[in-house]
């Protein structure tokens, strides 16, 4: 887990940067996933559901 930068080989540095970008990318996506869903979504779905009726 704790693989610190020791020799700072260019390859390690590149990998470190890519991993950092990956972490931020997931954070960016998860931030939206974790937002509360606007009521509008469920209202629209409810309306569409009612349109098809139950009987």
């Amino acid at each position: 887990m704790d693989e610190r930068r020791k020799g700072t080989a260019p390859l390690d540095e590149a990998r470190l940067r890519q991993r950092a970008i990956g972490v931020k990318l997931r954070q960016m996506f998860d931030d939206v996933v974790n937002e509360p869903v606007p009521d509008e979504f469920l209202e629209i779905l409810r309306k569409a559901d009612g349109k098809n009726g139950e009987g």
Partner: peptide, 18 residues
């Protein structure tokens, strides 16, 4: 179907945002 779809809304919003 609807239960599963509702659970996916947050993910759809995130994908649409990007």
């Amino acid at each position: 179907f609807q239960r599963e779809l509702v659970a996916l809304i947050p993910h759809l919003r995130a994908f649409a945002r990007t």
